[in-house]
């Protein structure tokens, strides 16, 4: 089994305007193997988004090492970094971030188009992914013509169409009702089992988290504990709730994706 993601002793310190500093991540270590489906949970303000942004290479840690599929993004130039992002990473946002001026299909193929993949290959992949995610009937629609669940599945399709080595998702069900959340997570699970996509989701929602095979809990910027799923999801769901109550903290807010 190959290691897709290896994070060693990541620390992130924010320096605010005064001499005040704030440690958002403190000595975080983790490792993801090929084909894993991992969740990160924690109260709001615990550093989940910060961690995900660092893994998505749009933010840099203060200290520590990262290796994604054998590459070290911290040593890359700007230009290589964006190329790396669009080849090796897929990103799903809470608010979909679909582009209104493009059709569903055009939204999906964006990473491929940016990478100058041939149009016949593009068509092939679109067909392949759209079938799996059940969006082949809405390919020619526009973003404002489809439901939230469909939007999120489109966003997932866009994130995996270039077969990234790692799929990152930040609160991807945060803007969805429970039915749409289920359909999005079902889609993600299917991709994980059928295509072997490695998935890392950040969430504060136990139901969403119950799709994962393994969950890392994070508190005040530190890894707190880790639980693994057995055979049944309902049992896992209960296990998650128990761990959360142990963890304490505030889970009621609706965190939003932020870049900084």
């Amino acid at each position: 089994m190959t290691t897709v993601l290896k994070v060693e002793q990541i620390t992130k310190i924010y320096a605010s305007r005064g001499k005040m500093t704030y440690t958002a991540l403190n000595d975080v270590n983790m490792q993801l193997e090929q084909g894993e489906f991992v969740g990160i949970m924690g109260p709001s303000g615990s550093g989940k988004t910060t961690l995900l942004n660092i893994l998505a290479t749009i933010d840099k840690p203060t200290a520590g090492r990262i290796s994604i599929n054998g590459h070290n993004p911290l040593k890359m130039s700007n230009r290589d970094l964006s190329k790396f992002r669009r080849r090796e990473l897929g990103y799903v946002f809470q608010d979909f971030n679909l582009i209104d001026s493009l059709s569903i299909k055009e939204n999906m193929i964006l990473p491929l188009a940016l990478d100058k993949v041939s149009s016949s290959e593009i068509e092939r992949r679109v067909q392949f992914i759209a079938e799996r995610l059940g969006i082949e009937n809405i390919l020619d629609k526009r973003t404002y013509e489809i439901s939230g669940g469909q939007k999120q599945r489109t966003a997932i399709a866009r994130a995996v169409i270039h077969e990234p080595s790692l799929l990152l998702a930040d609160e991807l069900t945060g803007n969805l009702d429970s039915r749409a959340a289920k359909s999005a997570m079902d889609a993600l699970e299917q991709l994980n089992t059928e295509l072997g996509t490695t998935v890392l989701v950040v969430t504060h929602d136990p139901f969403t988290a119950s799709y994962c095979k393994r969950i890392l809990f994070i508190k005040d910027g530190k890894l707190f504990t880790e639980i693994r799923r057995g055979s049944s999801r309902p049992a896992f769901f209960q296990q998650i709730l128990d761990t959360l109550s142990l963890l304490g903290g505030n889970f009621d807010d609706i965190p939003s994706t932020r870049l900084t």
Binding site: S82, R87, Y91, P111, L114, L259
Partner: peptide, 16 residues
């Protein structure tokens, strides 16, 4: 702004 920021996450470079 949000449009361009999502493009950056998708993997557009600053030059692009």
């Amino acid at each position: 702004k949000s449009y361009y920021q999502s493009l950056i996450r998708i993997g557009l470079s600053i030059q692009e």
